[in-house]
Each structure stands twice: as C-alpha cells, then as structure tokens.
Nucleic acid binder design. Structure first.
Lengths: 207, 207
DNA sequence: AAATATTTTAATCAAATGTTTAAACCTCTT
DNA sequence: AAGAGGTTTAAACATTTGATTAAAATATTT
C-alpha cells in the first residue's frame, strides 16, 4: 500500500496506462512507468511478471469498458438514428478525455495483432450483432435507407476516431491551437452526424 | 554500387522505407535495415549520419509525392465533385500499394511532431489553398451545397485512410482474409463517395 | 513478541542497439 | 602500376533496457 491508500498494483496500472497511451509499447520503458508512479522498478515485474503482461492486462480492461459503453446505448429504448448519434457522441467524449486512444489502439494492433486476443470475443460479437440486427430491423421498417450495417459502423467509427488520430497533422495544416482543435472536431462531429442522417433519410436512387 | 546497379544510398532508402512502414521508427533497428538491404550496418551512418536523419529524408520525399499527386488532380479541367472522387480513388490506390501508410504517418507524427518540419509548408499550403478556393467557387456557382472546405477535406481523408489504419481490428471483427478486406474497403470507398455526393447535392434545410 | 509471509529496495545481468573507428577494398586518374 | 578518393567491412563501445536476485523492510498471523 502506498500513502494514498491505492494499491501498488493499481498505482502501476494507472501510470502505465498514461505512458503507454502517450509513447506506445515500444517507446515506453519500465523505468518510465516506475518514475511516473513513484515506485521501484522491480515492482513492475513483481506484480505483472513482464512489461508485455502489464500491457495486455490494461488493454483488456479498456476494451471491456469500450464495448460496455456502446452496448449500453444499443440497449436503450430509442430509435436507431438516435443510437448512432449517441455512439458518435460517446466516442467523441472518450477522445476528449484520452486524445491518444485511437492512434494507440490502431498502432499497437498493427505492430502485434495478437494483442487482439486480449479482447473478449463474446463481448465483441455481442456488440456487433446488436448493432447489425438493429440496423436491419430499421431498414425493414423503412426508418432508414438500405445500407450494409458493417459499412455503416465503419463510417461511424472513422468519423470521430480518425481526426484524433490525425491530430498533429490537422493542427499543423490549419495552424490550430489545442482549443481550436477541439472546436474543429466538434464541428466535424456535427457535420458527420448531419451527413449520415441526410444519407440514411434520402431514398435510394432507382436507376 | 551494388550488383543491381542501384546506388547503395537508394538501396538503403528502399529497405528503410519498407521496414519503417512496417515497424515504425522505434521498432526499427539499423540492423534490420542493413539485413533487408544486404549491406553493412555502418553504411547507414556513412550515408545518412544517423537513423533519425535517414528517417527524415524518406519522410520528406514521400510527403512531396503525396502532395504532388493531389495537386495534379486539382489542376485538371474537371468539376470539383469529379476531383473529390479522384482524390479518394488515388488515396485508395496509395493504400493498396502501401497499406501501412496512414498508421505509420499518424503514429510517427504523434510520437514526435517535429517530423512535420520535414514537409514543405509551401507545397502543403498550395494544396490546401487550391482545394479550399475550388470548393468555395463551386459553392458560389451552386454546384454543391454550402460546406466548410476544411471539414469536407477532413471527411474525404478519413473515409479511406481510417480503414487501412484500423485494418487489424476490421479483419478480426468481421473475420476477414486479406482479399475480403480489400473488397470491404473498396465497397466502403463507393459508399463514402455516394454519401458525400448525396450530401453535397442535397439542398440545405431551411429551418 | 516471535515467527511467518508479503512487499519493497538496491544492485546486477545479459541482451540489444545506435554509433564510431580503423583497416581493407575498390575504382579511377595520371 | 601507383596513388588518391571514395566505399565497405568487421570489430568494438557506450548506453539503454527488461528482467532477476538476494537482502531489507513491513505487514500479518500465531
């Protein structure tokens, strides 16, 4: 136990998450983590055996949190278009809190796709199935135009995540400060919501 | 000169680009590069002084290639909607050739934004200005609905790049093989083109 | 309070890595 | 063919880094 009555184990996880997000797995050293959390270097191995294992633990916990948030929205008694808007907004908020989230996840999975195994396939399937079936039902009820649920989900994901992943380039191109960036992404979010809505509500062209 | 009559310098750059793209700057060792190109380790430093300098050289060359491709399209005598489609298709082709492109660029700039200084600000501004002014003109001529050019460009960028950046996750979620993935992104490209077109051609709501 | 178990510390190891050095090797001019 | 300038090689160096170890400190149980 450290002075703040937070377990050393949690203390290490908190510090590790912070630094892994910022520097990635390769760029993070166990010394960084020890310094950030103010504990002895050897404790990382004492509690988590290896740096890789510490990483996998944190990765799994965050994946579960992510899926839980989206599944919650899909279980609400509201229309599919409202759900899509809520999912986009939740994703937006997640990235306001942790701007490095997407670049981190994409990069780590790109470097080593075995890290995907840390994510519960059951939970993953639960979310995908829920989304897919609800979109299909909405199409059948003619609430929205016909569209492949997987492609729709991909567009929804891209719309917010990509801009945070490209944050340095965007800020540089448009000469933005931190505050301007948030405004830009926020406006982008509204535009995407508008665009997706416009599309889903436009009857298909019968050529 | 090596046996294939390609300069050693170019040989190193080719190998370095290949491995940097796959493993990132941190994950790439000068030994990797030497092995890939079949040259002696010390030559990396002989020709490029340092690993960082080799990286910056390659980065700058690719940025120029990228901007040149887009500027070319904007200088064609075709409509703005056709140009947007061409830019999306070019980006798609770039990622077919180098699937790691976006994750690589985003990640390296995220780790060290000073790498942006390798990109010519003049060329960058040239592209941004061209795009922005042409979109504004199209709006004035009422060819498309009113939309912020910067936001439009952001959406265009996101639509293709993001899916390649998320390739491992996508392939895992939807249980895809390499071939399926290409088909998926290709279909996604068509959907995005359709969605953007639909949006640009839909008159604004007067609330 | 003694004994036992758990946690923390400092020191150390072995492997990896960017870079340097000095000698060997070409290649071309004279 | 000798020599000069540029290129390539093998060896070595200094750091960094993930991990281990054994002792010390602290907590828990008896």
């Amino acid at each position: 136990m450290n002075k703040d009555n937070i377990s050393t184990e949690q203390c290490i996880k908190d510090a590790a998450q912070k630094i892994f997000l910022k520097k990635g797995f390769d760029g993070t050293t166990t010394r960084d983590i020890a310094e950030e959390s103010g504990i002895n270097r050897a404790l990382v191995n004492y509690y988590f055996r290896s740096k890789e294992n510490l990483f996998a633990t944190i990765f799994a916990e965050n994946a579960e949190l992510y899926l839980a948030g989206n599944i919650n929205i899909l279980n609400k008694p509201i229309g599919i278009r409202e759900k899509i808007i809520e999912i986009i907004n939740l994703d937006f908020q997640r990235h306001i809190d942790h701007p490095d989230l997407t670049i981190f996840i994409n990069n780590e999975l790109h470097r080593n796709f075995k890290r995907l195994l840390a994510i519960s396939p059951t939970r993953m399937q639960e979310f995908l199935m829920l989304f897919s079936s609800q979109v299909k039902e909405a199409i059948e009820r003619k609430e929205i135009r016909s569209v492949d649920p997987n492609h729709l989900l991909a567009i929804i994901s891209a719309s917010i995540k990509f801009h945070f992943a490209s944050k340095p380039i965007l800020m540089h191109c448009y000469n933005m400060q931190e505050k301007d960036f948030i405004n830009f992404v926020s406006a982008q979010k509204d535009l995407v919501i508008d665009m997706i809505n416009t599309y889903l509500l436009t009857p298909e062209q019968t050529i």
